[in-house]
């Protein structure tokens, strides 16, 4: 399988006054196309910090993040938004949808950030929402969508820029058990169908059954 993302011995240290907190400690892992990687661990184990570094949102204190063969952890702040737009799609635990935008417009945001013209974003957003089973609710605002529907919108948004990597932070945390299972299944289907590399941070045992690989994080280290 083609390797799309690699983290090499990354460490993240936060210095708070005299206290030194090692959030992620010498973690190395790889992520391949068509693969679902599950990162599990208790709260405070450094899962989200690791995901932030994989998504080029947070710069590691030490180590390298390599995307598509290019070391991105050393790139300037001006270049990183481009890398995120190009390679990474995010799905957030608390959805982070724009309340002033409809479901389709929430998806369109990413397409507009990529500089698509005025007609295409709408059509593409509708196709993506159809794909995640929300074809009937494209003009609904987030306040009128259920938790599961909101999560589907975030998947559509994550896919909108056609990234190689999808990073999902606790996708089932705010969902009931049945809906959680549905969205995880959907995420895996999307990954396999469109050959995306998916990394899911979760402590939901339901996710284990869907993952190709699982890594356990504890105190910032892989166990």
């Amino acid at each position: 399988m083609e390797r799309i993302l690699e983290v090499k011995d990354i460490t993240k240290v936060y210095q708070e006054g005299n206290i030194r907190v090692v959030a992620v400690d010498s973690v190395s892992l790889t992520l391949n196309r068509g693969e679902v990687l599950l990162i599990m661990g208790p709260s405070g184990s450094g899962k989200s910090t690791l995901l932030s570094m994989m998504g080029c949102i947070l710069r590691p204190t030490q180590g390298e993040v390599i995307i598509n063969g290019q070391v991105v952890s050393d790139l300037s702040e001006d270049t990183l938004p481009y890398i995120r737009r190009q390679y990474i799609g995010f799905s957030f635990q608390s959805f982070n949808l724009f309340p002033s935008l409809t479901a389709s417009e929430n998806v369109e945001v990413v397409l507009r950030l990529k500089g698509l013209n005025k007609k295409r974003p709408r059509q593409k957003a509708l196709n993506l929402l159809e794909k995640v089973g929300l074809g009937e609710r494209v003009d609904f605002y987030p306040r009128d969508l259920s938790g599961g529907e909101k999560q589907r919108v975030t998947f559509a948004r994550a896919l909108a820029g056609d990234p190689s990597i999808i990073l999902a932070d606790e996708p089932t945390a705010n969902l009931d058990s049945k809906t959680g299972r549905e969205v995880l299944g959907l995420l895996k289907d999307l990954a396999v169908e469109s050959a995306k590399a998916v990394a899911i941070v979760s402590h939901d045992p339901k996710a284990e059954a869907l993952a190709h690989r699982i890594v356990f994080l504890e105190d910032g280290r892989i166990k």
Binding site: G55, P81, Y82, I88, F90, N96, F98, L113, R157, G161
Partner: peptide
């Protein structure tokens, strides 16, 4: 948070 989301999604 929305602006943070925009940044995460690749907005400069």
């Amino acid at each position: 948070k929305e602006f943070g989301t925009l940044k995460a999604l690749g907005a400069r």
